[in-house]
Amino acid sequence: MNPIFSMVLRRLALSGVILLLVAGIVFIGTEVLPGDALEATIPQDERIYYTDEDFDRMRAELGLDRPPLVRFGEMFVNLVTFDFGTTILTREPVIGYIWHPIINSLLMASIAVIVTPLVAIALGAVAALKPGGRRDGIISGVTLFSYSMPDFVVANIFIIVFALQLGLAPAILLIPETAPAWQILSVSVLPVMALIVSGVAYQFRLLRAGMQETLRSEFIERARLSGVPEWRLVLVHALPVALVPMLNGTAQFVAGIVSGVVVIEAVFKFPGIGLELIRAISQREVPTVQAITFLAAFAVIAGNLLADIAVLALDPRARRMTHDK
């Protein structure tokens, strides 16, 4: 267990480094490039209402007159301690804006994150039992199709079919963001389904590629020539190896779910962090945008870390390869 423990520690340290770089990217993206947070907050056409002195005074108040490196250090420390500061114009704490939406979105996203791989694995196993067969062809075709569908289109199709035609669910969610969890979950069925569609397609395609490669390998041939039944070949011998590419794609998968959450919340008017992000961006509320972006990256990195640990558990060979994947 000891080498595994040290590898996990190593990955953890690496995640810290990446988080630092992410903070840097967020900082550069929102504050440094064209001007600073203040200029980003106040659009060009409103600047005529402010004098240069106003700007200088506000900069000093916000600490924006300090050198970028100092501000970056402060921002990084604040972000990793989950202290998101206050908004620039109204001076309200950012956490107050994002707390409930985050909880709501987490409720929805965590169902998708758990269900999606299970569906992908089930489809992958069914397709792998007869590679090149009819079921394989249909599943692959349908996933390639759904992989190509924009998620806001999928969500709207769900509304048209399930809400308008079948009347099974409300089309637009009229629910306060402080609603209790059970209420949020009860209206999350369509959004979660829409979220899963493209996620399943992505994961299934990676799993299928892994399966195809694994089923061609010599150890599968040996097991088959030893009379091991087909279902054991697929589930016991091949699956753990075939899962590795899918798990390596976890960062992309979680990132896709986060992007999906934003879009799908906009379609259903789901009171989550996605709607909050859109609001913050359109109102140019830089600290809120920074906080949400950072948290999104945090989720991606955490998901990836878990997947790395899963790979270590599945593939004993990976425990020896201390080098980069």
Partner: peptide
């Protein structure tokens, strides 16, 4: 009938 394949490393299931 039994078969002994060419490459013993890649012929054994790596995670078992």
């Amino acid at each position: 009938a039994a078969m002994v394949p060419q490459n013993p490393l890649s012929s054994l299931t790596p995670h078992m």
